[in-house]
Amino acid sequence: MTSAIRFSGVSRHYGDVRAVDNVDLDIAEGEFFAMLGPSGSGKTTSLRLIAGFERPTAGEIRIFGQVAQGIPPYRRNVNTVFQDYALFPHLNVRDNVAYGLMVAGQPKAQRHGAADGALEMVALTGYGDRKPSELSGGQRQRVALARALVNEPKALLLDEPLGALDLKLREQMQEELKSLQRSLGITFIFVTHDQGEALSMADRVAVFNEGRIVQIGAPETIYFRPETPFVADFVGSSNVLPPEFVAQLTGRKAHGALRPEAVHLSEQGHSATVRSVSFLGAATRIGIRIGDVPMTMLLPKSDTFPKVGDTVTVNWAAEDLHVMDRA
């Protein structure tokens, strides 16, 4: 596979603030790639570096093999779906979508036809004459998508595109984006702070923290085999076990990650005190403490739950405890 976007030692510093710090990255053509991390972790800055809104202070970015240095945003064949959509308030929906074609000099009839086609693709046929202010959040999001896609970009950059939508709409849009990406076959680069969103949609996920990429891999790898305590904690709130505790269990002195659902009540195992019990619907979350190591466990629906203050015995399969040698 050819490389769509490649970062080699890319940094973006603002004075002492290292928004992006020496990042190496290789995104393949046709890939659905997610950049995941808490706010301020450098994921959005990385996206803006690709789009050309920011300039790297060090390193090199290549877009489909070409060095991006000195190339303004309007000459890069990538398009962005903005977090706030950034629809032009003075233009109607059709002219918003046709904007890229208009500035490229396409005649009106042709670009309006293309815009209507793009609107159809995002299920907004008939909305062309409305102003963006007359649309709902979800509809605006689709217009932003159509406006970016009508230019036939080689890569689509999405900056928290679902952040402003409510939960139900967000899940629906996740499905649609995924299938859109499959049918178009172009590279999608998707920035999010929502680990569920990243895991469910992306082919690969890069986890950002403090301007650096801490782990890149397939969603399953990130989820089950986190390499650092940060990833274990941020991606799906694993129990991060201290090295001393892990050493007692495995003989290897390193942080361990243990998923809450991997812990279960058992006849034999570790004696634990129940600290909290929260009913979550499909499961119940129990906060326990083994010695001085706090932990959470998720118990499936059951008739009997331990109560706060109970002493219980818990255990897990040895292979579920993932030792993070790297940290």
Binding site: I71, N77, V103, A104, G105, K154
Partner: peptide, 9 residues
């Protein structure tokens, strides 16, 4: 042709 950089305008 899949140009990464356009030279339009």
């Amino acid at each position: 042709s899949m140009q990464a950089v356009s030279d339009r305008g």
